[in-house]
């Protein structure tokens, strides 16, 4: 059966022709793999299934005008983004908890920025933060992303990283200070 499946090029042609068979054939070819990718992040079959369906819808909306070189990579990236967003939404702290996150982020933002120049874009700041995080140890990096990207609680991070809460707080505090110093040196204007 797999031998009869369409090539990526043929599938993209079907998307461009607005032929709904494109989604059925894409599901046959990549559905299982995408569900696995989503499940790795969400740990819920139902959420993973919904994520994959959203992936096909997103692909339908983006092709055309886009014409990805690798349909598989294109679909995988969409699935991952959607899964992360869903995971983030599910774990996001309530209002009080989020307030704590912003208070902590204010600590980072409280540094002397360059006097002149325009504010840096979100992409530039994101890129700078990525560079900084790559220099950090894995457990610190992961704790930081869990706290400030996924907005997880200290308690939850401590449980997932098998640390006590005091350790997590200390790690986050030191990482915030280090990031603040990094942004200052890079001349980032928020």
């Amino acid at each position: 059966m797999s031998a009869e499946r369409l090539t990526d090029e043929q599938l993209i042609d079907l998307f461009w022709a607005r032929n709904e068979v494109a989604i059925q054939e894409t599901e046959l070819k990549y559905g299982k793999n995408l569900r696995y990718r989503a499940y790795e992040i969400l740990h819920s079959e139902q959420d993973a299934e919904e994520c994959v369906n959203d992936t096909f819808l997103a692909a339908w909306n983006r092709i055309p005008p886009e014409r990805p070189e690798s349909l598989h990579a294109f679909l995988t990236q969409i699935t991952k983004n959607l899964s992360h967003k869903r995971f983030r939404d599910a774990h996001r702290l309530k209002r009080g908890g989020m307030n704590n996150v912003f208070v902590e982020l204010e600590e980072i933002a409280d540094y002397d920025e360059p006097d002149s120049g325009e504010e840096d874009s979100g992409e530039r700041i994101g890129e700078c933060i990525s560079e900084f995080l790559r220099t950090q140890k894995q457990d610190k990096r992961v704790a930081f992303v869990k706290r400030y990207y996924y907005s997880e609680s200290i308690e939850q991070i401590a449980s997932e990283l098998q640390m006590n809460e005091a350790n997590v707080r200390q790690i986050l505090s030191r990482t915030r200070k280090a990031l603040q110093e990094y942004l200052r040196k890079e001349g980032i204007r928020l």
């Binding site: 912003f102 992409e123 700041i125 994101g126 933060i129």
Partner: peptide
């Protein structure tokens, strides 16, 4: 802004 930028990492 920092929080929104974190989505771009």
């Amino acid at each position: 802004k920092l929080f929104q930028s974190l989505e771009k990492i």
